[in-house]
Design a protein around this nucleic acid. Sequence first.
DNA 1: TCTATTTACCGTAATATTACGTTATAACAG
DNA 2: CTGTTATAACGTAATATTACGGTAAATAGA
Lengths: 109, 109
Amino acid sequence: MGITKSELFEKRQNRMALLAKAFDHPARVAIMEYLLNNQTCICNDLVTELPLSQSTINQHLKELKQIGIIKGEIEGPKVNYCIDVAVWEEARDMFMNMFSKPVAANLCD
Amino acid sequence: MGITKSELFEKRQNRMALLAKAFDHPARVAIMEYLLNNQTCICNDLVTELPLSQSTINQHLKELKQIGIIKGEIEGPKVNYCIDVAVWEEARDMFMNMFSKPVAANLCD
DNA sequence: TCTATTTACCGTAATATTACGTTATAACAG
DNA sequence: CTGTTATAACGTAATATTACGGTAAATAGA
């Protein structure tokens, strides 16, 4: 994107924005869902599963790893990816907290 | 961004990615939180509240409106913004569903 | 009518994202 | 050693995002 002035917002708001990025692209939603259903995967599993090239999928894995919500363990020539439970739970708590706030009935129509 | 090949993913995954965009920038998190706490707001409230220019804030409001998670009602020279409850609940359901799936203990370290 | 308030829109610059092809590397089987 | 498989890394092009200043339009009130 352009420059995001993250220094001007609360730490918590920046953190939530970062974690939301794990879900803000359909490929990353698909990858997270795959990991939820299969515990682990290697890049090639996703290449078979998703209609994207290996390099594109690898880029999404890299971004998810950068966010911290997944981890990769090198195992010979492969890398085993899995969800980082601590970060996953942090994200869950943040979204739960956001969505647990009461919302008034539509006030403008 | 670059081109997102949304036609290649499930409708649900594209929908989730869209809704996640309401939270993938700290300014939008701040706007959503402001609306949760105050029910409604006008653009100028946010200009006072947030360290961003009016045009930038207006752009974020436009994006949130495009996502559908907020609505705007014209009232004289002002526009009253509020959360669209139906879309909010759709987002809540999607994230709840995502985070309700059991996550295996870390399988790679 | 004049003015202040409020918002929307335009243009711009800088930067990030998405996607792919290509190439490099590392482990393993034969 | 060679070929296969798996992944990462590099370069690129196209497009989206973020942010701002400036400007225009619309309403409310003096």
